[in-house]
Design a protein around this nucleic acid. Structure first.
Length: 262
DNA sequence: ATGGCGACAGGATGTCGA
């Protein structure tokens, strides 16, 4: 089974990119982030005609997540509630950043983790609070679903080898100590980065800034991940970044990442 | 050292992204 994750930066703008890519691949489950559209306006039919079942949680202009699956999902839930109590979640489900579903006893959690803007900003504090809530949510999910795949746009580069230039990384969003520690606390629940099971060297990125020719110079960041519970980690046979869609005209700034499990 | 690009809402330009 192949489970892919892709921040498409608007599904309406990237509809043809995603269709072309799905036709060229053999993807069972595709997790999308930054769909940027309310559910009523999501372009469902072209993907349904390809044979996918769609599960979407969107909002106007910002954020938004979706799961496309060849097989129907057996259990679907958007946001942190009701896994976490409404009192604990508060307003954190207002931004549509999480959707989960189960297929073949594998629970797939699709995340669009907040960007955080600048280290020390209000949005940065929101990101850290969101990550703390995510930890509690995943703790409960792991108890319920031992075969857990947590994937999406994490907006965190876990290590210096995941950044083209780690200088000043401590003061840069996506690589500060507090962000990495929050991600480590999540991994410590029993989740591991699938990509690093297969590839040790640097230079592999999933996001490149639109500006300053970042992509042709390969000045990127690896911020899109699959974190797997122990049982699934053992079943992983490949995890690769497909740079091809990023080379096309008017691309998303992210490339898709594909996990294969047996 | 700095700025650079792109999508969205709405109808110019500000906000957000990473």
């Amino acid at each position: 089974m192949k489970i892919a994750t892709w921040n498409v930066n608007s599904i309406r703008t990237r509809q043809d990119h995603v269709l072309t890519w799905l036709k060229s691949q053999d993807i069972d489950v595709l997790c999308l982030q930054e769909t940027k559209v309310v559910d009523e306006s999501f372009p469902r039919s072209p993907f349904e005609e390809l044979g996918y079942h769609l599960y979407i949680s969107g909002q106007k202009a910002y954020n938004g997540v979706a799961i496309f699956s060849r097989q129907p999902l057996e259990w679907v839930n958007g946001g942190f509630t009701p896994i976490l109590e409404p009192d604990q979640v508060g307003e954190f489900d207002a931004q549509k950043r999480a959707i989960a579903g189960v297929i073949d006893n594998i629970c797939i959690v699709n995340l669009y983790i907040p960007n955080g803007s600048c280290v020390g900003s209000e949005k940065y504090e929101y990101k850290l609070e969101w990550l703390a809530l995510l930890r509690d949510y995943l703790d409960k999910m792991l108890a319920q679903f031992p075969d857990l795949c947590v994937c999406g746009d994490f907006n965190i580069a876990p290590e210096d080898r995941d950044i083209h230039d780690p200088k000043k990384r401590e003061t840069h969003i996506m690589s500060s100590d507090a962000e990495r520690e929050a991600l480590r606390a999540i991994a410590d629940l029993g989740l591991a980065d699938a990509f690093r099971q297969f590839t040790q060297d640097g230079g592999h990125y999933s996001w490149w800034d639109y500006r300053a020719g970042s992509f042709p110079r390969n000045r990127g960041w690896r911020i899109d991940h699959h974190y797997l519970s122990a049982s699934l980690y053992k079943r992983a046979i490949a995890c690769t970044i497909d740079r091809e869609p990023r080379t096309r005209p008017k691309p998303s700034d992210h490339a898709p990442v594909i996990l294969e499990i047996e």
